[in-house]
Amino acid sequence: MSRYLNLIQIFWKTAISAELEYRLNFVFAALSSLGGLAGSLFSLFLFYRKGYNFQGWRWEEALIVVGIFTLLEGFSSTFLASNLSRIVKHIQDGTLDFVLLKPINSQFWLSFHSFSLWGVPDLLFGLAIIFYAGSLLGVGIGAYFLAAIPLIFGVVIMYSLWFMLGATSIWFTKIYNMTEVLKGLLAAGRFPIGAYPATYRFFFTFVVPVTFLTTVPAETLLGRGNPLWVAGGGCLAIVLLILSSRVWQFALRFYTSASS
């Protein structure tokens, strides 16, 4: 275990020093994440300015959903996106061989190797929104810790989905746009799930589990979470995590590399 933690530290140190060569990128990242956030808030405002609300979600409460969504977007561009594009590259170039030869779990190596500062502004803005809306609503410190549980489940769910998609690149090689499809669907997490018609709610709970990513953590934070939903999210996270490793092992059987 400590070996793996050690490795993560080394991986991220190199990744950060590589990224620091392109400091201007960070300005662009901050700009575009600020723009994205302003846009999210504006689209929310369009609903609320006429007195409509999402099934009893007050403005500040809907803000928390936006905050969690921004946080998760930051997470995905910091940890997931850069690693995923590497998996594709390894498979395209046949360099996956070198990864497989290493005496550590290949899924671990592929999932944690890279780290991008691009998502950091999103992470910060997301947290800022959550704490701002939380302070307006008088959310206590305990609630934040409680909400961290479903949020972690959400993160695991998202990671597992991404990794499984990444694993399919063994068959399809070019999957950039498959991740775009997933990203497009996850964008539904911008709004509380109650804002959608019934068929959408079904789809975003049982087909693409967006509900567990933003709505469930937000409800927990607001103190009206349903333990059953949290537990459901936990089960889903564990199942998907195990499934992702199975899918990866299965996909590896079909890996033919470029040289052998």
Partner: peptide, 27 residues
Amino acid sequence: AELLLWALSGSLPFILMGVWSEAARQA
């Protein structure tokens, strides 16, 4: 195949369609 995926990835209007038509039903 890639084109099909690109066409699918533009799903944002359909998501917003859901939220807005639900909103229009109530307000």
